[in-house]
Amino acid sequence: MLVFDGLLALLILGLAWRATSSRDLFESIVVFIALGLMIALAWVRLSAPDAALAEAAIGSGLAGALLLATWSRIEPQTDDRVRAFSWSWALVFSGLAVGLLLAFAQIPADGQGMMDEVQAHIPQAGVAHPVTAVLLNFRAWDTALELAVLAWAWFAQQALNRDHTPRYQALDGEVLQTFAKWLTPLVLLVGAYLLWRGATEPGGAFQAGAVLAAGLVIYSLAYQHPWRAGRLNDWVWRLSWVGGFWLFVMIGLVGLAMGVGFMGYPPAQAGGLILLIEICATLSIAFLLAAMFSGHRDTETLASKSNKES
């Protein structure tokens, strides 16, 4: 296995170099996606399946899709500048690398971190999987703020450019549409499964949300417009972006009022509340990530477009 790990490490370094040094933007993106998959493999080898799932789904999959969507909107470009090798940066980063190696040798190898502490409190946490217990209970405030970060990233994107649908290529035939149709139930199933499994095993809202978002991305690729269910009002969409965060902190405030502290739950209800929060968080994450990819066609944008056309 040592050989495999060594090869994996070298491959990761090589791909990272290629992704940053390539002159062709498209090639950089493709290599970046491959890099994400290799890093996910590395997480598996480090016995961190949660991180592996997140890296594969978000770091490689959706980030890659976002990069490609951006690429489709800008002029094809290659970077023809002659690149000077910067000794100062090379020095800074090799210094950092050497320092990290030394630090790695110094830090206790059998360090358990807070694992004992976490295991001791699992019975009161409402969920059995330690990662989920940390994310949704012990350090719920971090996770709530991460949901806010994701929402604000999308608000920022909206602020900068109202129309950011990818530039789709015309498709012949209906292969992709059929594929999307077949995939939809599977995506829903896998998303729900990952969410449900998070209580006891690796999985949870971020991974489930990413899988659902991937399904929505495939839908918008196949039909060349963002997914919209029926005639739902814009308000429903906007609420879906912030619903996860606000439900989370509202329950946190109830905790404050009930005397278990801000962002705390009464232990007896913890399991149910966490599941409720995770469901809403999953939906928020899915719709936020999908909106970042395919844009959100609200009535305002549509109106301004038809104004321009007329």
Partner: peptide
């Protein structure tokens, strides 16, 4: 936060 004693909580 959340009523968890240090070092577990925030």
């Amino acid at each position: 936060l959340g009523g968890w004693a240090l070092p577990l909580g925030i």
